[in-house]
Design a protein around this nucleic acid. Structure first.
Lengths: 121, 121
DNA sequence: TAAAACAATGGACAATTGTCAATGGTTTGG
DNA sequence: CCAAACCATTGACAATTGTCCATTGTTTTA
């Protein structure tokens, strides 16, 4: 598919997709021979769906690129994928805990506001 | 307390604290009369603890400033604090869900890696 | 077939969230 | 007492994550 369709189906802007491609996160499989247009596979959709969640979880594009590369071909001897994953899992868990704490704070705040909406004179 | 103590106790760098102060998120209560040093109250610690969780939850400093102002003095007639809170609560809930999805992805990836650590030849 | 929409590329710009360095003054520990 | 550590302020710089614009060419559609 071309970038327009990928954009529509993934929800990311074309510019965002191009940025991700520049960053190495996704790549066009082929080019249309005559017009030089890029062609993306279904896999790109799949990757972009993960990107949505990953960004919400606070993972950077660079880390995500590392991760995806690692999942696709575990061909880097120097790279300890297991340690990398363990670190990221821990980070996401921590973040979820902090988010839950903050959620509690927000909910408390809402309660406080409900009980005393206009305390000023 | 001065900024150094606030930094040590909150875990934020002095520069980060100064940045937050510029952003309106915290403010020094007083100045030491003779030397012009700023003085922060315990409240600043409290705020900065919230900031840690809030950032993990993806809230921006500006939004957080709005929130804290709202909690301190509900004196803005034009501002619908309840709607603001509701929106932020929803956003954090969404983010937690996405983070949990991404966590599952990571855990799956770890399993996959464990079962086939070196598939290449 | 002409206009509108799409695509590629390149580069400028922007918001957010800080860090770092310089300068000048103050406090503190040994 | 004096060096090290602290503080305030200013401004430059940086990484991340995009957006927007211009230019040029292609495809689609009315």
């Amino acid at each position: 598919m071309r970038i327009g369709e990928l954009s529509k189906r993934s929800g990311f802007s074309r510019d965002a997709i191009r940025f991700y491609e520049r960053s190495g996160l996704i790549k066009a499989e082929t080019r249309e021979a005559d017009n030089n247009y890029k062609s993306y596979s279904e896999n790109a959709i799949f990757t972009l769906e993960i990107v949505q969640d990953a960004q919400a979880a606070g993972m950077s594009i660079d880390d995500l690129t590392t991760l995806i590369r690692q999942l696709e071909f575990q061909d880097n001897d120097d790279f300890d994928g297991d340690a990398f994953l363990a670190e990221k899992i821990q980070a996401v868990e921590n973040r979820i805990e902090a988010s839950n704490r903050f959620l509690s704070t927000l909910i408390q705040a809402r309660e406080a506001l409900k009980n005393a909406p206009f305390e000023h004179d």
